[in-house]
Simulated scan of single mutants.
Amino acid sequence: MRRGAALTLLFASVLAAGAATGSWAEDGRRATGTLWDGPEPARDALVPAPSADVPAPAARELVSRSGDRWSAAYSAGEYEGVRQGLDGRYTGVGLWIVRGRGGRIAVSRVLPHSPADRAGIRAGDRLLRIDGARVTGEPVTDVVARLRSEAGVAPAAVGSAVSLDLVRRGTGRWREVLIRERLTVDPVTLAYDSGPAVIRVESFTRGSGARVREAVRSAAGTGIVLDLRGNPGGLVAEAVGAASAFLDDGVVATYDLRGRQHALYARPGGDTTTPLVVLVDGGTMSAAELLAGALQDRGRAVVVGGRTFGKGTVQLPRPMPDGSVAELTVGQYRTPSGRSPEGRGVEPDLQVTRPGEAMGEARTVLSGLGAGV
Rank of each mutant, 00 (worst) to 15 (best):
R2K: 10
R3E: 13
R3Q: 11
G4R: 05
L15R: 09
A19T: 06
G28I: 12
T32P: 01
T34N: 14
G38L: 06
G38F: 07
P48L: 02
S51W: 15
P55T: 10
A59G: 05
A59M: 05
A59N: 05
R60Q: 08
E61R: 05
L62K: 07
S64K: 04
R65I: 05
S66F: 09
S66T: 11
R69H: 07
S71A: 12
Y74D: 10
Y74T: 07
E78N: 02
Y79L: 14
V82F: 02
G88K: 03
Y90P: 04
Y90C: 10
T91K: 11
V93H: 07
G94F: 13
R104T: 02
R109K: 08
A123D: 06
R134S: 12
T136L: 06
V140R: 04
T141Q: 09
T141S: 10
A145K: 13
V153Q: 11
A156G: 11
A156Y: 06
L164W: 06
D165P: 02
D165M: 03
D165F: 01
V167Y: 02
R169A: 12
T171C: 02
G172E: 03
W174A: 02
E181K: 12
T184D: 03
D186I: 11
A191D: 12
A191C: 04
P196I: 03
A197R: 01
I199V: 15
I199Y: 14
E202H: 07
G209H: 10
T222L: 03
T222Q: 09
V225H: 15
L226A: 13
L226H: 15
V236G: 05
A242P: 07
A243G: 13
F246T: 00
D248P: 01
D248T: 01
D248S: 03
V251R: 14
L257A: 04
R258C: 00
H262G: 02
R267P: 11
L276S: 09
A287Q: 05
A288G: 10
A288C: 07
A294L: 03
A294T: 04
A294C: 11
A301E: 15
V303P: 14
G305K: 00
R307L: 04
G312S: 01
T313N: 00
L316Y: 15
M320C: 13
T329K: 15
R334K: 03
R334L: 08
P336G: 11
G343K: 01
E357Y: 07
M359S: 05
G360W: 02
E361L: 14
R363Y: 08
L366A: 08
S367W: 07
V373G: 14
